[in-house]
Design a protein around this nucleic acid. Structure first.
Lengths: 118, 118
DNA sequence: GTTGTATTCAACCTAGAGGTTGATAAAGCC
DNA sequence: GGCTTTATCAACCTCTAGGTTGAATACAAC
């Protein structure tokens, strides 16, 4: 099956991961460069353990990956994962927008024409 | 300030709203046409009260709006809200991708050049 | 006005998210 | 070996999300 396919649980985890300001800030920070847990924890008024948990949430959501560098575990943003979420959103947004466009054309054309769109 | 500006709480609510398979299915359904609570509840094995709550979550997240038609309260998908989320994701995805592209160019160019990207 | 349909409100339950503190693991430095 | 740094594990607490049932509201239809 398509590796870029996103099952429901994967979407659950990805959107849930982004539904937290700390984790979104981490994503924003990682967009500029990879970073370690300590570096990522620095701006926040919470413990490093809490940040470590946030990173694990992002990792299980597939949004970030981690490597090894001695005792450090640099975190890396997976931009393809963000793209998959964008794709999910765009899919339904475009369906809805196409529908509105058709409706507008019908209305502008000449008559109500009592078609779809309850 | 820009009405399309998304504060942290708005992003919290929007992403949280999408972190549930029932609510995502509702969004998918609404992309095809507006629908009432009863219509939206039909495919699910949960009570209408639960679906009503889901819709309120989507509404407070700004993802849907509601109108009145006698005792019915048709739900309408706000595609602009989806677009705002896409914009948030793309913002950081593009920063990360640009960085990778530059790094690739540096590597392909000729020498390591010991620049950024820890 | 009474019945029926669509939706919400209120109270409650349970599981999990996000936080803490304290102990543990793993790797470099002297 | 011992010490320090980086990061995680474990146990715990509190708050909220998602679900239930049962009563209440709002409007239509008869």
């Amino acid at each position: 099956m398509d590796p870029a396919e996103l099952g429901p649980e994967a979407l659950d985890r990805a959107f849930m991961a982004l539904a937290d300001p700390v984790r979104r800030a981490i994503v924003a920070r990682l967009s500029r460069s990879d970073a370690t847990v300590n570096e990522l924890a620095e701006p926040f008024a919470i413990t490093k353990q809490a940040v470590s948990k946030h990173i694990q949430v992002l990792e299980q959501a597939g949004l970030v990956t981690r490597s090894r560098d001695a005792q450090r575990r640099p975190v890396h943003l997976d931009s393809a994962a963000l793209e998959r979420l964008t794709a999910w959103l765009d899919q339904y947004r475009l369906i809805a927008e196409r529908r509105f466009r058709l409706l507008d054309e019908l209305l502008a054309d000449n008559r109500p024409a009592g078609a779809a769109e309850k």
